[in-house]
Every structure is written in structure tokens, then in C-alpha cells.
Nucleic acid binder design. Structure first.
Lengths: 189, 189
DNA sequence: TTCATTTCTTAACAATTGTTATCGCCGCGC
DNA sequence: GCGCGGCGATAACAATTGTTAAGAAATGAA
């Protein structure tokens, strides 16, 4: 359990047993909504098995903009940290095995990280990485056409294409499922 | 000078004179390239007067994806911090008055910030804000059509529309300058 | 298995955007 | 003043994507 945190913060090894007790295991069926758009996030999740998506409602249509898989930490980060309403919902795509931690308990771990210079610097690096990811993803929207984005996704993240229903991928690419279907048709022949 | 840093890090007040000496004032004409795409960033900039753009080359066409104005800190953040080649160029749009600091000197300030818990937490908050900005900007690309994005830009950041040449704005919105011209024409009547 | 729901494909037509090219305006340097 | 280059508007046509609708295929539950 919580492979990610253990690997990334070896400095916390001593305190690990104590921290692990703060996490709660839960199994949820597909389509469970873990956080509703507009609500304030009080929980952060860790995925042991299954996958999630982040999405928001746009004029009645749901728009998926991020996927999460095994061994990833998931939260509406700005809502969780700042206490603001979440800009999006978080939902299980498959039946999932998750661990969740309450905000007040996370702050205990956070405090410990903050006191260890190495863990702290590791944490900042993680934040920077996430920022760069968003930036690159965003740049790819200006840089590439929908067809190019699909081909790139197929090449660089084939696990997404294999595992995620196509209409979610379509909105992730910024197009309709009809258009994605056409693109796929044109590519395979 | 360096209004931004002074306001955001009041904890550094005592050391400020010492740190200010690490910055170098420079005046550059329009179209000066401060960092070339592919080079490794060794300098961070602060804008006293003027504006900059971040852009990259895509199949021979230049694509602008961010603008910077007075009192903002500018760098190819991931290149500056990680020593990797920059994914984009940074260029003056207008004649500018800038202050720059070398990476090794910035690390002195960084170290001081890291030793003061309040300044440190302030720094993390700044990083989080930047991450949320990228995320929201990216979400707007999935959520809105080019016309909607233009109207939103006009409403929320009119200073950009007023000050920046239109063909830069077009690529910032992810469209051609021809298409932006059509949209403007349709909107004004 | 069987039925219902979800997912994906295809078609026809509308709307939008890209491409290429031309023209006019404006500011800057010589 | 004059010419040049940068910038923006417009036109005509091509290409792409959206919309709506219908039906096939796959999936999941009873």
C-alpha cells in the first residue's frame, strides 16, 4: 500500500507505520463520484487498483480532462489545500480499491515533510513536475491538431487508449466522440 | 525595483539590500530574445517596464503561449531549476527595462527562503498558484471554442488585447490570425 | 441466457477553421 | 519624403470538426 509515498519519501520511513494508520481503505464500484464539482475537498486519495477521471460540466456535457491510475495520488489539489470549491468532479471509471486520508490527518504528514529538508525539497520537486506536466499538456493543445494529439496519445500513453472508454478520451482530446471515431477510422487504414 | 519579491516575501526585508545587489539592470529593444528554445536557462528575469512573450517553434511557425508584464518574474522555470533544455524561447515584445539574476545567485536567495518557514510556505503557495493557472488555462481550451476564448480574454484580460499585436494573440488562442480577424469582425457588429 | 444500457461507428449536412493570396494602412529608418 | 517591412482585413476555396440521428456491437446485470 501507498507505494508512491514510500518510494518518494524514503526519509519518512521511520514514521511510516504511524502515518499508514491515517489512511482508510475503501472499495468503490465504477461511476462512484468521490468529489462533486463545487464541493470543498476534504479527502485525498491514493489508487491501489482501478482508475479515476477528473471532469467538469460544460453546458450540460461532461468534459474529462485528466486520468489517474494505480499508485497515483489524486485530489482536487487547489480545493484540498486552499479550501476553495472544486472546479471539477473526481469519479471512478472502473471498480477501484482506494486509500483515502482526511485533510486534518494529511496536515500531520505535511508537517513532518516540512521539517525534513530533503523530503521538503522532494515535495517541491513533485509540485514542479506537476506544473510542467500541465504546461506541456496545454502546449500540446496549441501546437497540435486533434489528429496529431490522438496519435501522440497512442504513442506515448497507449495504456490510456487501451483502458479508457473512447468518449472520455474524445473530450480529453478536446473533440467529440464522433470526430475521434472518424480519426481512428482514417488512421487504421 | 523588484516590487513583486519585496511584497510577497516581507520576511526577507532584513536581507533585502544584500539580495538586491545580486540583480542586474538591463534595457533591451523589442524583439530581443532573452532565452533561446533548446538552451539551458541560467538567468531569471524581473520586468520593470515592458512585456515579454514565451513561444516555441512548431513546423516553422511560431506559437506564443504566454505573456508577461510589469512586476512579474519570468523564467523558463523547469529549465532554470532542473538544468534541462528550455522548451520555449522568451522574447521582448516591446523595449523593456529588466532586472536579471544568475542561477547561482538565485540559489542564495532560495536558500534563505528555505530557512524561513513562512517565506517557504509563501513560496510553495506561489508554485501552487502557478500550477492552478496552467490548469485553468488548459481547461479553458477544452471547454471553450476559439470565439468564446477570445471573448473571455477580452473580458478578463483586456490589457493583453490592447497591448499585444494580434497575430501573437491568435496563436495564444490556438488559431490563425485570419480566423481571429474573422471572429473580431463578427463580434463588433 | 436474455434484456437493457453503454459504447462505438457511420452518414448527411451545417458550421467553423485553415490555407493562400491580395490589398491597404501605419510606423520606422534612411 | 520615400520605401520597406510589419500588421491586419478580406476573399475564395479546401479541410476539418460539430450536430443530429440511427443502428451495430459490446458489456453488464438479473
Amino acid at each position: 500500500m501507498l507505494k508512491l509515498v514510500q518510494e518518494r519519501f524514503p526519509q519518512l520511513r521511520d514514521k511510516w507505520e504511524e502515518f499508514a494508520a491515517l489512511y482508510h481503505k475503501v472499495e468503490v464500484p465504477a461511476k462512484t463520484i468521490l468529489l462533486h464539482e463545487g464541493d470543498t475537498s476534504k479527502k485525498a486519495f491514493y489508487i491501489e487498483k482501478g482508475c479515476l477521471r477528473a471532469w467538469f460540466n460544460n453546458k450540460g456535457k461532461d468534459v474529462t480532462f485528466q486520468f489517474f491510475f494505480e499508485n497515483e495520488a489524486v485530489s482536487s489539489i487547489e480545493s484540498f489545500r486552499k479550501g476553495t470549491p472544486s472546479l471539477y468532479s473526481i469519479e471512478a471509471i472502473e471498480p477501484c480499491t482506494l486509500y483515502w486520508i482526511h485533510k486534518r490527518d494529511w496536515e500531520i504528514i505535511q508537517k513532518t515533510i516540512d521539517e525534513l529538508p530533503e523530503a521538503r525539497s522532494q515535495y517541491v520537486t513533485l509540485m514542479l513536475d506537476r506544473q510542467v506536466n500541465y504546461m506541456q499538456h496545454f502546449m500540446s493543445f496549441i501546437k497540435y491538431t486533434p489528429k496529431e494529439r490522438y496519435l501522440q496519445l497512442l504513442k506515448e500513453k497507449p495504456h490510456i487508449v487501451k483502458r479508457i472508454p473512447q468518449h472520455y478520451i474524445a473530450s480529453y482530446l478536446g473533440i467529440t466522440s464522433v470526430s475521434l471515431s472518424r480519426i481512428r477510422n482514417a488512421v487504421t487504414r
